[in-house]
Nucleic acid binder design. Structure first.
Lengths: 215, 215
DNA sequence: GTTGAAATTAGTACGAA
DNA sequence: TTCGTACTAATTTCAAC
């Protein structure tokens, strides 16, 4: 239902400030940190937790919304309680130059919670939530297979969701860096004794060639 | 940071009510629907949008929270603005009976936004957000590879996030069913003319055997 | 960027339908 | 259960510092 911002792999670096928009300082990040944990906190309480005045908190709060740094506030629902106990990932190979059609069809499938375009063997990954396993089957064979843009799919089930953080922020990363610095050997040394063979990075070209049977 | 509820593939069916807890009626679902779009709406405004009294809305709101149907409220942050423009998926093969260790290590990696245990070729999928591509590399080769529980990884980059719905609810599914009923031929007939060969379901056993080189 | 006081709104309690 | 109202507490706005 909502298009979300592009994550170009091309534009690496420059943390803290990308494109036009608000310059985010430490207090902004602190506000985001509180808000992602408790989206319903009052601005007054937020001001206190962050250590600034209420008026300041209101100004910054509004600025973050207007700037788009905060995209929206949402309630996290327990899917099991809501009757959608089955979660699956469907990896989709899309016929090139039919992306537009694929996207349009996705928008018409409400059981799709998330869709990302990826490098690697497949072109897209979609996550669906349904009430039973049969619904996954019918989703894939009935709905997805009938989209001409879809060349092939591969489905796996999610057995358990171990972790879901509301949204990751740079401050977390910094905190982790500080934490690990005290008990970790230097990066170069550490990288040296890693069995590199077991780690594999899959670029778009490499993986796709392997799967290209038809077309 | 937060363990979330299990999605047993075993328990199919019985939509709307699973396990002990609140019986969710249409008004409950309507409340959830409003709240997932606007997590900061006042209960008064919520009552009006759902068409119930303020007092009733407070009661139901509290019941939903107490029951756990609403897990939490959160702000969705624009990662690009927050300086985390790179997103990657890392598929991890975990040494059996080392899950506990794997989970513990995950909790210490703040760049991990999501982790799910899956069927198929790999055992888990983790989604990470970092500031640049180099950070993905160091994350995989430096941090993940040093966890004994990790047998192998496969990394793909997310080029674009097409869709993110706050959380899918059964009401969406019903709406879609009603929509498609009017312009779709019966399911049996539709399934008959699908080229089934291009669709693949990957169970845990099948896929895992293919990747088991060492161990 | 801060504080404090007015206006508004949110949350609670309780009796009636 | 749900609704309506009255009451209390809190939040937001706005002004002066």
């Amino acid at each position: 239902m909502s298009e979300i911002s592009r994550n170009g792999v091309s534009g690496g670096g420059q943390p803290g400030r990308i494109g036009i928009g608000l310059e985010l300082d430490d207090i902004h990040l602190k506000i985001l940190e509180v808000l992602r944990e408790n989206g319903r906190i009052s601005v007054a309480a937020l001001a206190e937790r962050v250590g600034i005045s209420r008026a300041n908190a209101y100004t910054r709060f509004e600025a973050l919304r207007a700037d788009g740094a905060i995209k929206r506030f949402t309630a996290e629902i327990d899917h099991l309680r809501a009757g959608l106990g089955i979660t699956a990932l469907i990896f989709v190979t899309v016929r090139q130059q039919m992306w537009k059609q694929f996207r349009a069809e996705l928008a018409r499938m409400p059981e799709v919670e998330y869709c990302a375009i990826t490098t690697g063997q497949h072109d897209a990954m979609i996550q669906v939530r349904v009430s039973d396993v049969a619904a996954v089957h019918s989703m894939v064979t009935d709905r997805l297979a009938n989209i001409p843009a879809v060349k092939a799919t591969e489905t796996v089930f999610i057995l358990d969701e171990v972790l879901r953080r509301p949204y990751v922020l740079p401050s977390d990363r910094d905190a982790a860096r500080d934490r690990s610095r005290q008990q970790r050997r230097p990066a170069q040394e550490a990288q040296g004794d890693v069995p590199l063979g077991k780690m594999r990075f899959v670029g778009a070209a490499e993986g796709r060639a392997a799967l290209r049977k038809d077309d």
